[in-house]
Design a protein around this nucleic acid. Structure first.
Lengths: 223, 223
DNA sequence: ACCAAAGCTGATGAAGCAGTCAAGTTGTTT
DNA sequence: AAACAACTTGACTGCTTCATCAGCTTTGGT
């Protein structure tokens, strides 16, 4: 993100290194914003986390707000991708299981991203207004239509598909956003154990599938 | 919270008025901290929301951090109370339904409190270490033991009771913490409609009860 | 009516903050 | 190797922020 990219024939190697630096800054920012919120994060802390001088961050992103927005943009992509498994020709149980698995993978591998998103929504989502109201809404409408198709065909019981998504998101994301609380209750010292995520995932699938009148077995449905 | 309450015979009326002012400040702070986070909230904004000069907040609470901690303390009480319905002599379906209803009432009536708590946990819960690790953990252990008792008696299917609580909390709290997102997806303008909460609550009960091998009917189980 | 303590607040200070800039370095093109 | 653009960063600036404090008003007990 050069401030003024004048030269259209810009050198590739240089461009690549610059992009690498920005990725590094964004990765560090994900953690800092998650742990301090937008208001609590300082440019000094963001710079220290990235191992760069603060002026460098300003060179690449201009302002703290623009850095935050760039980070959010990245995170929103991840959010939408997870629902790819829900297609009309899939079976309800397999599709929902795969969706839950994808969301849980996201919670396990990118907890800071999940927290930044949660923080943003929590605070009213001013930066997300168009994402929530347009892109996400349209995507959810599509997926809801697929579920309603399954219901009409008698492949699953009647459920409000949107509220089902709200609950599915809440359950899967809680393993990232509320990890501190879960750890405290389970008495885990530093991080949740892999089996904690596995137990959670299995229980979410059980609740969702049974809630939709679908059978649930502990063993993997979707190999 | 007089800074130095020297006189043990202190006037009651005065004390009461002071306590009233503090309640007013705390109520305003709940909203401001929820909307801006700890770092993003300024004493000026907190003061404006309370309709008082900033120096007044400092008189009553000393520092921003102490005001925040006082608020958090209040909120934690609410959190624990909700699980009162879970007692060994209750029926699993009635007790779980009542718990879900209590948590949903909390999300509907005190969304800002829920958001402040969520924000705190999200950011690592430094101020909550002893609450999460001692009070909450003990309370959850007690309630988990009750559920395990029901399972041994064959009153409900075997489930990991702690993870069941994590999911129950996540589902109910999402109607406060992620209200912005839910509103956007449902296309609600200003606030969620009462029936949105009702649909959510019914679906949560359905998922939880069926997940535990208990029957679920749309009509109220617990009059 | 008087007084001591509690309650209140405008003015002010010190610290930390985001953001700018000029002077430098690096890398690429020609 | 010269020229130029992209990139880097230490030093700086003006602003916002939290917190203090001195002096004021209110209140309740005597």
């Amino acid at each position: 993100m050069q401030i003024v990219p004048k030269n259209p024939d810009m050198a590739r190697a240089r461009q690549q290194r610059s992009a690498q630096a920005e990725q590094r800054i964004l990765a560090a920012a994900e953690r800092v914003f998650a742990e301090s919120g937008f208001g609590g994060a300082t440019m000094a802390a963001l710079a220290a986390a990235a191992g760069l001088p603060a002026a460098n961050l300003h060179y690449h992103f201009g302002t703290k707000k623009r850095l935050y927005e760039a980070l959010l943009e990245n995170i929103l992509h991840l959010w939408l991708e997870a629902s790819d498994s829900i297609t009309a020709d899939a079976s309800p149980a397999a599709a929902l299981s795969a969706y839950i698995a994808a969301k849980m993978r996201y919670s396990r591998t990118r907890p800071y991203a999940s927290k930044v998103f949660a923080n943003e929504v929590l605070q009213g989502g001013v930066h997300l207004h168009s994402f929530l109201g347009l892109e996400l809404r349209r995507r959810v409408d599509e997926k809801a239509e697929i579920l309603e198709g399954w219901m009409r065909k008698g492949l699953m019981e009647r459920v409000d598909p949107r509220h089902l998504f709200f609950l599915l998101w809440a359950m899967t994301q809680t393993y990232a956003d509320f990890e501190t609380q879960i750890r405290a209750v389970l008495g885990r010292a530093a991080v949740l154990a892999p089996e904690d995520y596995a137990v959670g995932e299995a229980l979410i699938k059980r609740l969702v599938l049974r809630g939709c009148g679908l059978s649930f077995s502990e063993t993997e449905i979707n190999p």
